[in-house]
Amino acid sequence: MRMAAVFTLLALCGLVILVLVREQTGSTGFLVGLGLATLPVPLLLAAFRWLDRVDPLPWRNLVFSFAWGACAAALISLLANTLATRWIATATADPASADTLGATVVAPVVEESAKGVALLLLFLLRGREFSGVVDGIVLAGFTATGFAFTENILYLGNAFDEDMAFGFAGLGSVTAATFFVRIVMSPFAHPLFTVLCGLGFGLAAAAPCGRRVRRVLLPLLGLLAAMGMHALWNGSASLLGPWGFFGVYGAFMVPAFALLTWLTVWSRQRELRTIAARLPSYAAAGWLTATEPSALSSMRARAMARDFARRTYGPAAGRTVAEYEAFATSLAFLRNRAHRGAAGPDFAERERELLHHLWLRREVAAPSLAYAARATGRAPQVLPHRDYDGFNPYRT
């Protein structure tokens, strides 16, 4: 019921932002902007989804993040930015100064705050599914991609409308220049800003439960960093001119994007190492076979196990193995959070629930993972039984 109410509200925000954007761009400009703005969206979403393959987030969280960015955050930003810029223009009697202040000061604060609300809601209401850095980065990426999608419709639609009014066409048109800057050069700009906020929430989610100050300060620091980078990006065009823009792009934005890309890939590899480190204790206790922890810590072996089950037993078996892999991954992350003191008081209950799901699927998953472990040369890893302190009611 609550989820239906949230998505109904987002749909209403989407209708309102649709009307507002169409009023500014006109029908033809809106359609042109929509078509051009759609181009980078599948690539960005696929990239963030790839990062999330080890422990995939529920689709409802990803859809909510994208919809919030495209509808709610875009609507809040459009209204707040417009009102703030008009107020500054009235107070200073200088429209040009108002536009500059709006772009460099107001927009970064309003837009990053509006996008950050999606992360805050998921952090507070879906804390069990928000477990670390990769989750924060992926959710921030989906939110910012949705926001950039709507914003690009507006910018590209306005550019096309201007070209129609003044007769510009071809590579010298405003539409071509806007497309090059926003779609070709910097499709990652908004995701890059908001990922800093997501990084803060991810670090907070991984922090021990008793570190309340850290869990509050880290998201705030991430939000401030996102605002600062956003202000630098907007200011490079508004205050420094074209050459300043390209200077900031080459000297700061590209290296920052490369650094965050490395961080996200490293974080994904760290997730696989966590699986390899935490699951052997369950193998020692009899919940998993000796080869499963190694197979589950390899993306290649996991894919091979699903394919083997699908070919040998049918599509339903392939889905069963995929579910088994997901539950085993969640179990490894849960135990890792407990090892750091961040699992919460319901650790034992959640552990039993995940082990129960594994046991129900073990008959199909175990031979498939064993085959994948042999095919990929993954050696078994079994830790001493003392690392596991749970009770196995299914052992015989």
Rank of each mutant, 00 (worst) to 15 (best):
M1A: 10
A4C: 05
T8A: 12
A11W: 07
G14A: 01
V16T: 12
V19G: 08
L20V: 07
T25V: 08
S27W: 09
G29L: 07
F30T: 09
L39V: 15
P40I: 00
A46E: 08
A47F: 14
F48T: 05
R53M: 04
D55T: 09
L57K: 08
N61Y: 11
V63S: 10
S65R: 04
F66Q: 01
G69R: 04
G69I: 05
A70G: 12
A70T: 10
C71W: 04
A73T: 10
A74S: 15
A74C: 14
I76Q: 01
L78H: 06
L78C: 08
W87M: 14
A89E: 03
T90I: 10
P95W: 01
D99Y: 10
T100S: 11
G102H: 09
G102N: 03
V106Y: 13
A107G: 01
P108W: 05
P108G: 00
V109H: 03
V109T: 14
V110G: 02
E112S: 00
V117A: 06
V117D: 05
L124N: 09
L124S: 06
F130S: 03
F130Q: 07
G146Y: 01
F149C: 11
N152P: 13
I153K: 06
L156V: 06
L156C: 11
L156Q: 04
N158D: 13
A159G: 03
D161N: 13
A165N: 09
F166D: 07
A169Q: 11
G170A: 00
A177W: 06
R182T: 12
S186L: 08
P187W: 10
F188N: 15
P191L: 03
L192V: 04
V195Y: 02
V195H: 00
G200Y: 15
C209W: 02
G210P: 02
G210I: 03
V216P: 01
L217C: 06
L218K: 09
L218H: 08
G222N: 13
A225G: 15
G228I: 12
A231N: 13
W233D: 11
S238Q: 08
L239F: 07
F245H: 04
V248T: 08
G250V: 14
A251D: 10
V254P: 01
V254D: 13
P255M: 01
F257Y: 15
L260N: 02
L260Q: 09
L260C: 04
L263R: 15
Q269C: 06
I275F: 00
R278D: 04
S281M: 09
Y282P: 08
A285N: 00
W287D: 05
W287E: 03
T291F: 01
T291Q: 14
E292F: 01
S294A: 14
S298A: 00
M299A: 14
A301S: 08
A309C: 00
Y313N: 14
G314Q: 08
R319Q: 11
L331P: 09
L334Q: 06
R335E: 15
N336F: 15
A338S: 12
A338M: 13
G341P: 08
D346H: 12
D346E: 15
R350T: 12
E351S: 03
E351T: 05
E351G: 00
R352V: 06
L354M: 02
H356K: 11
H357F: 01
V364P: 03
A366Q: 03
A366Y: 02
R374A: 15
R374G: 04
R378I: 02
Q381M: 11
P384C: 04
P393F: 12
